[in-house]
Design a protein around this nucleic acid. Structure first.
Lengths: 336, 336
DNA sequence: GAACTGGTTGCAATCGATTTCAAAGCAGTG
DNA sequence: CACTGCTTTGAAATCGATTGCAACCAGTTC
């Protein structure tokens, strides 16, 4: 019954069903065009042989690969994991595989992109690193590329992202609403697009109060360093409300302060960005701006699928940030 | 100079170089067998046409796919992200792509496996979910499968994993060494292999002291629940040292206790498992058993590559756990 | 009965790279 | 000069599924 040795191919099924391989192929991909009786016979033969299609052959013939590649700056970051999760599911549902690659955050940044910018490697590319140079994106027959989370200034690539400016504004407005009049920012690298938008939103909201900007890079280490800088300031110059551009920085900032004997939110309020799952389960729970990560992945997947299948796509898909009010923000304590 | 319209193929390069396509193919894959002069001419033609190989065609001919699939139980978990990172790099270096898929933690668990258990989809599979049923693994012409992190009891699949039993032992021994005589365990699901090995190690080490086991599932919520259970115990019955089988549970446990007015490690010592990066940057910093995650990914990649390329592999690759001594463990306070 | 219709099916070409086999070229040797 | 041995190259088959085109059949219809 089962033909166990050396994998059945289309022709084998055809022989068993007494039809040509064209017909078998048709039953499998356009069942509606073949007569009921034949279809049944073929299906039986398929079952009997345990036939499974050879993807390489189909891909060669159809000129596609069946997979989409996600290029992330740093796979180790838990933030991306959740996004990939959403992406993976959406793509799987549409019959595509998700190939992940790391741009290795700096060094071979463009190599990774170039490697996949090839219609025989991927049907589409979801770029999540805003720092690759857009110079490679103009050759012909390239698979479609979109950006998610981050984006590339000046490139005409569809974007799927959070309204970062609004997020920045919300964070600062929250601190202002609590009564803070000196806001500290722990930002990202100056050239980073997320940094720039969040900074813009924050600045707009903080127009009439004092603003101190510290440079970071979204990592735990940067949060730690910012805390030490804060501690080193004369007390009168310390911002009473801190807005960190990532939860990791916010977390490390709080921890370093607590370890140095300060208390959050009594001595300083802190608000983060992203809403990584873990930060709501530590003490004190971090107040933060939430990015709908899984949703973002899902939407990015949908957009790349639209592009792959030739449908028109909006140049910009914007997600709304959400303020997660928790325990690290409070009105400033009155100065003695 | 550049032939920009419709992608050059082998035959185009051949025509330009004045040789046959066989020769071009040879220059590209076995350069040593072709004469220096010809090779040079071909290389020039390749450069001039901007030729890039068509992977589908090569894969069809060579009967391989060029990618390896990692099946993870839950892509959203930051723990896996780091492992995938290590895997991705190692595989990329060997010319393979990393395809990730989620087993969706329960529901369609086996579907994902079966979908990829197909030599035309993947050259190899790295299985990181110990709960798929091994029943599918015996058909012929299947790509090689190995397990990483978790494994399947009774299946003869190569394993790459931490010495979980030793990790469990180390954790408990650490608590014992501090003077704790009543140890609490926050475990995983009873059927989970990680749970079983860690439990075994822990039990061995705790032979002569009191041991209280709470069931969890590695998530933050489980840690939270365990904390509430601890709080609800009569004071004399509360374990003074807690060993949680994941950092997330440990974290949530600590946070819930702190929020309820307890202090860690004064009222209870807590040690976690995994050493997720974030837990060393919160206050109090979590004492934990470290798994070398990136290394584990890298090794798993190497093992699957060995299997793919037909080399012999060890049935078991065991990594050593490491005690990360931080701030959540201390000698028990004397009972009043 | 011829012509025409619409629904099914098969033939054969095709996708692009790899590889087997044999031929061609060339040098050295008896 | 014929022959052997070696390197280098090309022609053609191959991997397995898809699809344009043509053939075919059974009904209509005139």
């Amino acid at each position: 019954m089962e033909k166990l040795s050396s994998r059945a191919k289309l022709a084998d099924v055809a022989r068993l069903a007494g039809v040509s391989s064209s017909t078998v192929s048709r039953v499998l991909s356009h069942p509606e065009v073949v007569a009921e009786a034949t279809r049944q016979a073929v299906m039986d033969a398929v079952a009997a042989t345990g036939y499974r299609m050879n993807h390489a052959a189909r891909n060669l013939r159809k000129g596609r690969t069946g997979s989409v590649v996600a290029l992330v700056p740093n796979l180790g970051n838990p933030f991306f994991a959740k996004i990939l999760d959403g992406m993976g599911r959406e793509l799987a549902a549409a019959g595509y595989g998700l190939l992940v690659a790391d741009t290795l955050d700096g060094q071979g940044r463009d190599t990774a992109l170039v490697r996949f910018l090839d219609p025989s490697r991927a049907d589409g590319i979801i770029l999540m690193d805003g720092l690759v140079s857009s110079g490679h994106l103009d050759a012909p027959d390239q698979p479609p590329v979109i950006t998610a989370c981050e984006w590339i200034e000046g490139a005409a690539l569809p974007r799927v992202m959070l309204d970062n400016r609004e997020g920045g504004r919300m964070a600062v407005q929250h601190l202002l609403g609590l009564g803070h009049r000196h806001i500290g920012l722990i930002g990202g690298p100056a050239q980073n697009v997320l940094h720039r938008s969040r900074l813009q939103g924050a600045t707009e909201a903080a127009q009439h109060v004092r603003l101190t900007v510290m440079t970071g890079d979204f990592t735990l280490q940067a949060g730690h360093a910012a805390a030490q800088a804060w501690i080193a300031m004369p007390q009168a110059d310390r911002p009473t409300g801190i807005f960190a551009f990532s939860d990791e920085m916010a977390c490390a900032f709080v921890a370093t302060l607590v370890r140095a004997g300060f208390s959050v939110p009594r001595d300083v309020s802190v608000i983060g960005f992203d809403d990584i799952e873990l930060v709501s389960h530590i003490a004190p729970a971090l107040t933060t701006i939430r990015q709908p990560k899984r949703e973002l992945g899902r939407l990015a997947a949908r957009v790349i699928l639209d592009r792959i299948e030739g449908r028109e796509v909006q140049p910009l898909t914007l997600l709304e940030p959400l303020l997660m009010l928790r325990e690290t923000t409070a009105p400033p304590s009155p100065r003695p």
